[in-house]
Write a protein that binds this DNA or RNA. Structure first.
Lengths: 215, 215
DNA sequence: GTCTATATACTGATAGAC
DNA sequence: GTCTATCAGTATATAGAC
């Protein structure tokens, strides 16, 4: 079948693909892989079910594409550190960038949560490989900081999980947070306040003196 | 239809109902409400699908029953506090009991997470009522402690969410934790270490002096 | 109480008209 | 490229034999 790719058809294709990805991220995040239906994704994207499958191949491929997109965002956040860096600066940047990921991509964060909740069948190799190595490397630096007296000798892995969990919470449990605080949405000032709170409590809790106090 | 309730039939009924609840909690926790199938629950319980529906009425009723059971466990943990209590003792007990709920009921914790992840459609009234009131009451006590100089003036609601999220993490993200730390399970000593870590960091982070240091 | 059989709706995916 | 029609499979739920 010959198809003339006019600018219009290309633009339409891009627009449809984008709409599908956004819709699918929302539906997968809400109902998980099994609970999501192609029909629901198609309706959310404003397209017939067949078109969705035409564009993305299969439900499974669509899910993998979305997970890869989210892990890409995640990796973009994971910069390397060294013993010579300032603990306060690094930890604060760590908390802030993780929270910014939650704030800017709540659906993707929830998608990730749903995937891990079902035992992370699609992410095993990533978690046991790339991400474990990254955690181990960072943990060693934390330990060296503790040896140099720059922070308390806390278990570095539990510390990393503390930062991940406390920030991730505002995506995954957004419904609970909104219900309890009687809000419709979490505003940018809300996110700023929460982030400042987490930086303050976690850094102090680890015995790290903050680099500067203007926030 | 007349049925003679011998001790055996009663015992069988109880055993089956128990098996169904356990199996359903696992399947709903893993795949969410929509992603769970009665068939999968029946297989996990070792019963024919029809029997499951005979016992529990419908998938929806089964789900509600499980949520109610979990909220019962949750409420059993929520003891009241007053300004005259010791902040260190109360906060530490809060963290420890929340972590103990995670440890003893990981499936229930994940079930709760999956429910909130989909927007908490079944738990709206609970979250906006009972639980919000409980949080508000506790928040007021935290604020009074801060006024009396017993702890830093941190936002009490973010503090409660910090405790919930950092403990809940070890149920919801168990797959990630196990992959990264290269474990098959989280042992009781692991849970003790994590709990000690969280008590130490969070209490210190809020400027609360710990009551005793023997743990 | 427990099972088989089945009703009805929906699932992911595809074939083929346009 | 986009749609309708349809496939085989599975979903929840129930009716009725035993």
């Amino acid at each position: 079948m010959t198809t003339i790719l006019t600018p219009d058809t290309t633009r339409a294709r891009l627009r449809n693909e984008q709409a599908i990805l956004e819709a699918a991220e929302q539906v997968f995040a809400c109902h998980g892989y099994r609970g999501a239906s192609v029909q629901a994704i198609a309706e959310a994207a404003g397209l017939p079910k067949s078109n969705v499958l035409y564009y993305v191949g299969s439900k499974r491929q669509l899910y993998v594409t979305l997970l890869e997109r989210m892990m890409g965002r995640w990796n973009a956040m994971l910069d390397d550190i060294s013993v010579d860096d300032d603990p306060a600066e690094v930890l604060e940047a760590f908390i802030r960038s993780k929270m910014e990921l939650t704030r800017s991509h709540p659906q993707g964060s929830r998608l990730f949560a749903a995937e891990v909740l079902q035992g992370a069948p699609f992410l095993q190799t990533y978690l046991r490989g790339e991400l474990r190595d990254w955690v181990d490397a960072r943990a060693r630096v934390f330990e060296q900081w503790a040896e140099k007296g720059l922070m308390d000798p806390v278990d570095p892995v539990w510390l990393i999980f503390l930062i991940w969990s406390s920030t991730q919470h505002y995506a995954d449990f957004e419904a609970q947070v909104l219900s309890i605080t009687d809000r419709d949405v979490l505003s940018e000032p809300d996110y700023r306040n929460i982030t400042d709170f987490l930086c303050r409590v976690i850094l102090k809790g680890c015995g790290v003196r903050r680099a500067s106090s203007e926030t």
